[in-house]
Write a protein that binds this DNA or RNA. Structure first.
Length: 810
DNA sequence: CAGTGAGCGAGCTTCCGCTTGACTT
């Protein structure tokens, strides 16, 4: 056979991910070349929506700029191939990827085979190769409808916000609902009134037959509303008789949780390892690329048969037959498409992997969760004990658990928000029988406050979105960073506030009252909606309630399903949505007021001028005085990060106008404290130093502390310069966030890792600058600038034609 | 590039879902 003929006989398989391509190539052998498309290769053009509204919503697709090389390579490989196997995922997006490839690569039906598999196992792949099918154009149309709908919603809605709220904002089917969830929770929290009651806990002892004493904690089945009632009860208990009334035992079984999906992995990694959802995904990506776990963006809880078999083998050999119990889990989440397996170790017998600490920890989590899912139920006996108090109708209650058979608990315990200490607490109960008499050690009634609803963590928000069927595994992490980038949401720690609580204690025959302090409402790494987020949300809820409705996605998904089975034409479905939606947009542009979230707080007692808060061009601000008063301009001040338009008081707002504040002199120059774009700062001799968050208060800060901050800043600035040269003051070796680098005439250049930055000579530096200049002619800033100007020109042209068009229509 | 807060006005921003690197100051 000639070389050419050999090449022509080639089978080209195209999958979505390069890591997958590598694995599959091994299964298929020499006759097959497996390549990756790296996801979608085309998308709607940015200009004019990328949708031809005058021509039945015809999509205008362009090859994505970062896929040009991929497409070029695939095209040339197609030339050498007899058969092209389109092996993208078996879901809506995957079918569309196959179709785009078919179109762009100019394939013919005769040379094209569409294949699908849900597991990356040899059996599954070989079976798929034996069962090719044509591209399902109805499913492709469902994807086109999804894509066009999202584009129309996003690109019509966002400009409304630019006009009515603030430039550069965004709205969309997914992100706007995510923000809505946070805003509504924040309002619940603001409206929440904490209520308190006294919870009574007692420590008893019981003496067994051998005269040994055992301790027992029990809680009263009633909470007292007032301190007086609690005091009365404890006083009564001073001389009370406590006896066991009833002991009941109840068997329980616990079952393991399903193997991980993207969403559950993000939640567990957040709770157990403290990872953000973005961190989890990038660590998982590395494990996936190294072939250690299966694909990490999935909504399926299914495991391949071979994986279950391997898990069984491992459980048997490590722990014994009685720990094996296989299960098929079913997905509960709305709109799951299950194109992949659950996230599991590639090899079930591999208990640990090498790599970074984060990779090892995440792998451990995945390994244990997967194995546990095929292990036996745990059998537990729960004991409940009631204890009577002489002369009272109230009873104490205690419960304990004994694990009869640990089963999957041996491997993995799914975390809730309960801490470990609590898990140990309901462990053992001492041996007790009915009629046993108990001795009292101590008793206390502590005032407990009802809890505000919790703010969402990133992972909790993902869970909520998934429950509602909003967003996909590949978009959870990006969505969360988008809403933070737009300034709708900030992720923060809040320290909480001291709160007093009352305590009544009975000890050594005496009842005492006291008042103590606890810290309440502290939050770690939670999502807080900002004022902008709230104003945008309120605007959308008012004018586009149908779009930000929690059910909107579910509703359109039903339409997409009908398109996918061929019952509805996709352009018809889009038309039915778009006509009324577009009218809604036009009407809103015409009728709605600019929305600044303005709130009048009252008037300044000194001058009588009105004090209002609203969103200004640069964010939330307070204003003292009227804009209508032409003689005198109003004074303005930014709100601090912690303050909110919704909750700020008149007093707090008035304080803002006391800034900037003169603190005095240092080295004969003025020291001024103020609040700027980046938060509270101290200014001295033309230089700025930020105040420490949570430590310094701009209203209270002293001159001494301000000087400290100035000196610290100086120190940092000095450390920034590692080396400079007399010959060329523009060239410096600097210390940056990612280690040393060379700064030269406003541009930055890398220093190779093996070089010692401090020992570089002037000539060596110049050489690095030259080399760097050749390889990467510009830093990232410069490249993005170039990009924006290039595309800027395009959009300029298109925008003006579009403007003309719409003007002509009218 | 930090005390700003609709001066003219043009041009720009934006969606959701598939995928990875390249590169950050």
């Amino acid at each position: 056979m000639t070389q050419k003929a050999k090449e022509k006989a080639l089978n080209l398989v195209i999958v979505e991910s390069p890591a997958k391509a590598k694995t599959i190539e091994k299964f298929l052998g020499k006759d097959f070349l497996v390549k990756s498309s790296y996801g979608h290769i085309r998308d709607l053009a940015k200009k004019d929506f990328g949708v031809d509204l005058a021509n039945n919503y015809q999509p205008q697709y362009v090859i994505s700029s970062d896929k040009k090389d991929v497409v070029k390579e695939l095209k040339s490989l197609v030339q050498q191939s007899e058969t092209v196997w389109l092996a993208s995922d078996e879901d809506r997006e995957g079918e569309a990827i196959a179709w785009h490839l078919y179109e762009v690569l100019g394939l013919t039906p005769a040379q094209t085979k569409r294949i699908v598999f849900h597991e990356i196992t040899k059996e599954a792949i070989l079976k798929a190769i034996k069962n090719p099918r044509p591209i399902d154009i109805n499913l492709v149309d469902a994807q086109q409808a999804r894509r066009v709908l999202d584009r129309l919603v996003g690109f019509e809605l966002s400009p409304v916000l630019w006009k009515k709220v603030k430039p550069s904002l965004s709205a969309g089917r997914v992100q706007s609902v995510a923000v809505r969830l946070l805003v509504e929770r924040e309002r619940e929290i603001n409206a929440f009134n904490a209520d308190s009651a006294f919870r009574v806990v007692a420590r008893f002892f019981v003496t067994d037959e051998d005269g040994k004493k055992h301790e027992l904690r029990a809680e009263l089945n009633h909470r007292f509303k007032t301190e007086e009632e609690a005091f009365q009860f404890l006083s009564h208990c001073k001389n009370g008789q406590f006896s066991v009334e009833q002991v009941t035992r109840k068997p329980l079984t616990k079952s393991p949780a399903a193997p991980f999906t993207t969403s559950t992995l993000q939640q567990e990694a957040s709770r157990k390892l403290g990872f953000s959802v973005g961190q989890t995904m990038s660590v998982a990506q590395r494990l996936y690329e190294a072939g250690k776990i299966t694909y990490m963006r999935t909504d399926s809880v299914n495991l391949a048969d071979t994986a279950v078999a391997a898990a069984v083998q491992k459980i048997k050999s490590d722990m014994g037959e009685k720990y094996v119990q296989t299960r098929q889990f079913k997905t509960k989440s709305k709109g799951a498409q299950e194109a992949h397996e659950a996230i599991r170790p590639t090899y079930m017998d591999k208990e640990a992997v090498s790599g970074t600490a984060a990779e090892q920890k995440l792998y451990d989590l995945i390994y244990k969760r997967t194995l546990a899912s095929q292990m036996s139920d745990a059998r537990i006996e729960r004991t409940n004990v009631n204890i009577t108090v002489s002369g009272s109708t109230y009873k104490f209650h205690a419960s304990g658990e004994v694990i009869l058979f640990d089963g999957f608990l041996k491997m993995y315990i799914e975390s809730s928000d309960v801490e470990k200490e609590d898990e140990e607490a309901p462990g053992f109960l001492p041996p007790l029988k009915e009629q046993d008499v108990l001795g009292l050690i101590a008793m206390e009634a502590r005032e407990r406050w009802t809890q505000k609803p919790p703010r969402y963590s990133e992972a909790a928000l993902v869970r909520k979105l998934e429950e509602q069927g909003i967003g996909r595994p590949s978009t959870y992490a990006p969505t969360i960073s988008t809403i933070q980038q737009r300034g709708y949401v900030v992720k923060e720690d809040r320290p909480g506030n001291p709160r007093k609580y009352r305590l009544v204690q009975l000890e050594a025959g005496e009842v005492k009252k006291s008042v103590k302090t606890e810290n309440a409402g502290a939050e770690r790494s939670k999502l807080f909606p900002t004022d902008i987020g709230m104003v945008v949300n309120d605007f959308l809820v008012k004018y586009f309630p149908n779009i930000v409705d929690y059910e909107f996605t579910a509703k359109v998904e039903k339409e997409f399903d009908q398109i996918a089975v061929g019952d509805v034409q996709w352009t018809k479905a889009i038309d039915q949505f778009y006509q009324p939606f577009h009218n809604q947009v036009e009407e809103t542009l015409e009728k709605s007021e600019r929305n600044t979230g303005e709130r009048v707080l009252g008037s300044d007692p000194k001058t009588g001028k009105p004090v209002i808060v609203r969103i200004g061009r640069y964010g939330p601000m307070a204003q003292l005085g009227d804009t209508e008063n032409e003689d005198e301009k109003p004074a303005f001040a930014s709100l601090t990060r912690e303050q909110s338009i919704e909750t700020i008081t008149l007093e707090e707002a008035l304080k803002l106008f006391e800034l900037p504040r003169d603190l005095g002199l240092y080295e004969d120059k003025k020291v001024v404290v103020g609040i700027g774009r980046f938060g509270p700062y101290v200014r001295h001799d033309g230089k700025f130093a930020s105040l420490k968050k949570g430590v310094d208060d701009p209203m209270e800060i002293s001159l001494e502390r301000a000087i400290e901050l100035i000196e610290e800043k100086r120190e940092r600035d000095n450390k920034k310069i590692i080396k400079s040269f007399e010959k060329e003051p523009d060239l410096q070796i600097l210390n940056g966030r990612w280690g040393p680098y060379i700064g030269y005439k406003g541009k930055n250049f890398k220093i190779p890792k093996e070089k010692d930055a401090e020992k570089l000579s002037f000539e060596e530096c110049l050489k690095l600058v030259e080399d760097g200049g050749k390889k990467a002619p510009a830093t990232k800033k410069a490249t993005t600038k170039k990009k924006t100007t290039a595309s800027g020109k395009k959009t300029t042209a298109s925008k003006s034609t579009k403007a003309k068009k719409s003007a002509a229509k009218k």
